[in-house]
Design a binder for these strands. Sequence first.
DNA 1: CGCAATATTGACAAGCGTCAACTTCGGTGG
DNA 2: CCACCGAAGTTGACGCTTGTCAATATTGCG
Lengths: 248, 248
Amino acid sequence: MTANAAIFATQSCEICPIRYRAVCARCERDELAELESVKIYRRYAAGQTVSWAGDRMDMVASVVSGVASLTQQMEDGRTQMVGLLLPSDFLGRPGREVAAYTVTAASELLLCCFRRKPFEELLRSNPRIAGRLLEMTLDELDAARDWLLLLGRKSAREKIASLLTILARREAALNLRQPEGRIAVDLPLTREAMADYLGLTLETVSRQMSALKRDGVIELDGKRRVVIPLFGRLVSESGDDADGGPLS
Amino acid sequence: MTANAAIFATQSCEICPIRYRAVCARCERDELAELESVKIYRRYAAGQTVSWAGDRMDMVASVVSGVASLTQQMEDGRTQMVGLLLPSDFLGRPGREVAAYTVTAASELLLCCFRRKPFEELLRSNPRIAGRLLEMTLDELDAARDWLLLLGRKSAREKIASLLTILARREAALNLRQPEGRIAVDLPLTREAMADYLGLTLETVSRQMSALKRDGVIELDGKRRVVIPLFGRLVSESGDDADGGPLS
DNA sequence: CGCAATATTGACAAGCGTCAACTTCGGTGG
DNA sequence: CCACCGAAGTTGACGCTTGTCAATATTGCG
């Protein structure tokens, strides 16, 4: 992780907003105390790069608040987002020296960082942390597989509807609710970042957002806030079957 | 895992072809003996379904030989492959009751199966198995992220070249070699399965295979064997930068 | 040898990308 | 408080890549 990140004073794990969803979720009080002594908070401004593909990676981290994106680039500049990290998600790969992807703060971002080597030691010694990381990695793999379906088989309109559905579900999950009826969703991504997520151009994203608005599926409140008058309607536009699954 | 699979006699783990790559790779002799007493081999014919999305999943398994595919389907029938499991890959998700994807034998397939519940107990008690599974899951997540780039940003021609490159690398890895110069690769997939992997139609796959042949990038020896006169040429057609990485 | 499954090829159309002009937003400084 | 400016977003015209539908060829198996 590179410089320019503001470093903040350590705060108590007990009152941490991601206490029960992050990699430390299963830890007991005494284990938290151990983590607390070695963690470092880092804050990044929207748009700032957290680390470049190819950089040495000496840290792993949890996203405390904000949104980070992982992206991959081809030589000619074509860009694909390959990870969208929301609060409680884990960043970094134990056992890897060199970052495989570029990490960018999509919005203001707060990370809870650990030095990689000591964290790897914890993974070996603490089955609660190792088990939770395995579970989170399996969840991420499932999410990646849904993303494969989105990229490989969905139309531009379905892709947009799917992304809005995902964001609505994650936002609702933080409030321990199911999304339904009329809801508002924050869009922490620019049109270009949405395009990189969806394998589209930003022009196509813009056109399909306009089309969904014209058809009454969404309303725009500024550029970065979307109101969904009827959540079920959006889901049916996404091409997925209704429920959203009993997963997680 | 459903019926119709032939069940074979237990064979020694010591001489297993995937001994040093599978989930059991780090186990010691005595641990292998424990696994040996509970494993069951199952064999499936090409085209046979191993398990349907939504089925109860009471087993997990390692692919011993052959190829299995994981696929996801939309209500209207659009199909996307979301996993291609080759020898040593792990099948199933500890902690999940119900299969999320349909598993099909793409070629003749031999699985080394364990009942899920006892395997979950092993994960808790045996850090060698848990650690290896975490490592394999992280590798799969990386592979899925490369796949996202392929689906989101590559042309049909680049997609085909990428798939052939992946298969060549995996086949070479089994023989502990680096692919280079003139090599032959088995194609364990039909044109339709290739299309499902690549997010294309089978017609586009067929056309691009013909184009690569016309341009001298590949030669066809029957439908299911591809000769690559110059591996580097194929890689440059794939859109990836040369090396293929020091990964794994 | 014949049939069904698999693969190839062609003609055409649709969806999305490209290039370009224009508009809106949001923050800064006068 | 408002005017200005650059960044972000929208819209239009057009063309290319890939999908669709259909006919034909090839393969492998009984």
